[in-house]
Design a protein around this nucleic acid. Structure first.
Lengths: 247, 247
DNA sequence: CGGCGATTTGATAATGGTCAAGTGCCGTGG
DNA sequence: CCACGGCACTTGACCATTATCAAATCGCCG
């Protein structure tokens, strides 16, 4: 059964960090991703204007959500890592107002909306976890808005790196304060509302300040308290505290 | 019964624009807001860091969601009008990462999370509508991020005004392309990531360009196509198309 | 009438954008 | 194995948008 592929574990594992799964729920979840596929880097998974009939899980790789304005300018509004479900919104809002694209080669799982709806009805707790997932993204969008609207380039960039490290740690993709973060400076610019030229200069400042080390895809935070302070980073908005603790 | 107060109609009416309500659902909804209250202008309803046990509906007035950074800078991330439920997020994420405040005197309804959870379990369609509400906000946050990250002051301000007019129209608070929008230029600045001085100058440009007329609380769009074009405004992200049409 | 907040204006400064060119890195193909 | 091409990164010079600071005016409410 395709859904028993080891890839699925990323989704189940993630949900298991949020609530304690019963065997029945685990069984219902294992039936979920009905179609698993590999996608090359820099491919659109869904596009602005689409009306998808399924949602995707990132099982491996790095993806992002982005929007293009009528002037042709692009804003990246979130990065997606293992276990993330970036377009759950389409379950309740028919027309997509953003695109999702791969940034590296990815393994993706696709889940038909019909199956998701039935899952939510039969397993309200699981429905709640999916709802929660969309709320965490809403919180991330809001924090990025704060970041772009209120922080200057240096702390803005630092903030994005703080978020990245913490989220990577949360899904087990970080080694201490190091992780692989294979984005170009142009992509970073699209995420921070800056130009790639200025991103370049800010990264040099961050390096000179001894806060980070970033070579190729390898991001290393040399001074976590320093970076965190430079960013004014407060991880509350990531809501990493599991529901089981919250209850 | 308090919940039958005429104020509630704003919530029921709004939901009725999204799905066709059955009598049973209508009955379940009428039991919802258990506590209705009046709040003065410029009061916090909930604060960053709170762990609310209820969510509020705006029954009358104007409210906003805002976040304050560690540097003391404030970002407004959404406005809330009649029928909106601004802090549904607390139903699934225990700690609030934003504040909600009134901008004018408001009538608010409070709905205990327990009652909401039961409602969602017993009436999945209503649960879906509430989920949808949170997704629309997520889309608004994302669009504001695009706005602040990618548009210059002039179109950014125009965009915010376009959104305002369209949302006001959607809840019947606009008269053609005019509506009451009682925010100060300082508040507009906090919403657009600009300074109030610059907001002032941009508003003068918008007036000189014959696009708007704004005196006190009364916002009037004189040239809707012009404003829309200046903003690069595409209302898709507001998802005003009801679910009943979408299905 | 007085006072306070909101709006407006002016002068100046700075953050970050634009443009342009050069360097380094890596995979492809001769 | 080396040359080439392309893309990402880097650098410099210059410019524009927008912030900052300060003060004046307007308008409303007590």
């Amino acid at each position: 059964m395709a859904s028993l592929a080891s890839h699925d574990y990323s989704l189940v594992n993630k949900i298991a960090t949020i609530i304690d799964l019963t065997d029945v729920e685990r069984g219902a979840l294992s039936l979920l991703p009905t179609y698993i596929t590999n996608v090359r880097a820099d491919q659109d998974i869904v596009r602005q204007g689409d009306r998808p009939t399924r949602s995707c899980v990132v099982l491996e790789g790095l993806a992002c959500t982005s929007t293009v304005t009528s002037q042709g300018r692009r804003q990246i509004s979130a990065f997606h890592v293992r276990g993330d479900i970036p377009d759950l919104q389409s379950l309740h809002l028919s027309t997509l107002d953003f695109s999702i694209s791969t940034m590296t080669p990815c393994v993706l799982g696709f889940m038909p909306h019909e199956g998701l709806r039935i899952l939510c009805e039969n397993h309200p707790r699981l429905g709640g976890v999916l709802w929660r997932e969309t709320l965490v993204y809403a919180a991330i969008f809001r924090e990025w808005l704060v970041n772009v609207g209120q922080r200057e380039a240096f702390s803005r960039t630092a903030h994005l790196l703080c978020e990245t490290i913490v989220r990577m740690q949360a899904v087990g993709l970080a080694d201490g304060y190091s992780c692989s973060f294979p984005v170009t400076q142009t992509e970073l610019a699209d995420a921070t509302g800056m130009t790639s030229v200025h991103v370049n200069r800010v990264l040099q400042q961050l390096r000179k300040a001894g806060l980070i080390n970033w070579k190729g895809a390898d991001l290393e935070v040399l001074d976590w308290p320093g970076l965190r302070q430079a960013a004014g980073f407060d991880p509350t908005y990531l809501h990493l505290e599991p529901m089981k603790l919250a209850a």
